[in-house]
Amino acid sequence: MNHLPEAWGRPRNDVYGTYDASYLQSSMPNQHTQSPIVTGTSVVALKFNGGVVIAADNLASYGSLARFTNVERLKQVGTHTVVGAGGDISDMQYLHEKLLDSLIIKEEYQNDGHHLRASHIYRYLSKVLYQRRCKFDPLWNTLLVAGWDDGKPFLASADLLGTTFSAPALATGFGAHLAVPLLRRVCPDEAAVENITREQAVDTIEECMKVLFYRDARSLSKYSLAIITGKDVEGAAECEAKNQSWKFAEGIRGYGTQVV
């Protein structure tokens, strides 16, 4: 058997034709990311009186293929911050596991009573994303940073271009179209945050995750949810979209097992 990599999975040239190994040549210039490869879809988050709820499903898609169904897209950073990422999964993993981990390790090694909070981490990430876009080598993500900062809930967004903004209810990707209207119904402005209870916020986010699962083809019913309060971060992995109703599908051809 031929063990050269160009022969992997292609045992017979006479059947399949010669393998196109042109991409293995390294004479080509380095390519920067021009489009994301394995992607995560929406992240949704909502402030409430005393904290923030944030959620993202556990799917990593390869195009339209549901490639990995157990990917964690929420990451706790420090004691009172959660960073949720949509977009390219490998870029997300670089951000989460290389940049943010070492950022927190360096901060905590100082052991001087100072800790990075949500707004600090958000500024850092925004700068990283903007610098990378200026190098024409973007990290292909949209991030939501949720946390408890200076006695108040904190929620803000940053994307691959370095665009930054903040609002009491945010959602990335498909969620910007489907979830934001649901969230804004509960929380139209910053003043409304005061009247939103934790339970209400969680219910609203759960509803959003359900709607997104219904209507976003690159989404999953399994998702992670985190609640950040002044006390701590409570994480709930392996949430399942509740109270689903697919009744409408009964009369539609193409859903489920069709007899005729």
């Binding site: 001087d112 100072h114 600090h120 958000y122 500024r123 850092y124 700068k127």
Partner: peptide, 12 residues
């Protein structure tokens, strides 16, 4: 201030 939006801690 620019990178972390934080006044530098004195000890640092």
């Amino acid at each position: 201030r620019l990178l972390y939006n934080r006044p530098v801690p004195i000890s640092r």
